[in-house]
Nucleic acid binder design. Sequence first.
DNA 1: CGGAATCCAAGAAGATACTG
DNA 2: CAGTATCTTCTTGGATTCCG
Lengths: 103, 103
Amino acid sequence: METTDLFEKCLGCRYMVALMRRIGEGTARPGQLERALEDISAKVLSERLKRLVEYRIVEKTAFPEIPPRVEYRLTTFGQRLLEIVDEVEQLHNKASKQADGLL
Amino acid sequence: METTDLFEKCLGCRYMVALMRRIGEGTARPGQLERALEDISAKVLSERLKRLVEYRIVEKTAFPEIPPRVEYRLTTFGQRLLEIVDEVEQLHNKASKQADGLL
DNA sequence: CGGAATCCAAGAAGATACTG
DNA sequence: CAGTATCTTCTTGGATTCCG
């Protein structure tokens, strides 16, 4: 599992950053996440969650209940990653503002 | 131009991180970059470079010569971005190693 | 409810040819 | 040499259905 993959498969795909943010805010269950993301389909949400688990950005807990309940939360790595994403966002905003001033 | 785009359009696309790295190392001309990236097509390379310029990660200089010569280099923002990418890489490696130890 | 399988539409990437 | 346009191929996302 190379790190380039981390960018292509986890950060670069549609919904991924938004999804990480919701989970970071405490939205833990797939149903809630599907509503929170607004226009994501259940299928794509599943795929994304699965991938976030693979890359250890998110941890999954399944409760053996009827009906089934599942919860996702950020790993320590996931939390750091999200912080870095925010850092990039700020950097990007600053750079854009500067550039606009120059035009 | 939102920041989510930055991830989806610049970091998440194939070749992008590798391309930024080569430019950061001083490989400046399209022809060289095409050879350095090994299996990227000229068309896709063009598209990527264009996008990196749009997002102000890279700056383009065209010399009015025959035959034409063009050079690309990282902006200040691009350099910072690449540093952060490296940071994520290290973090990811560390997290993976830890996880392997636990299995 | 959570998730996997299927089928279909949309977008990204590869190959090639052409212009300045 | 650098860059655009076109055509084809493949990967990704969306809608639906079914199972535990």
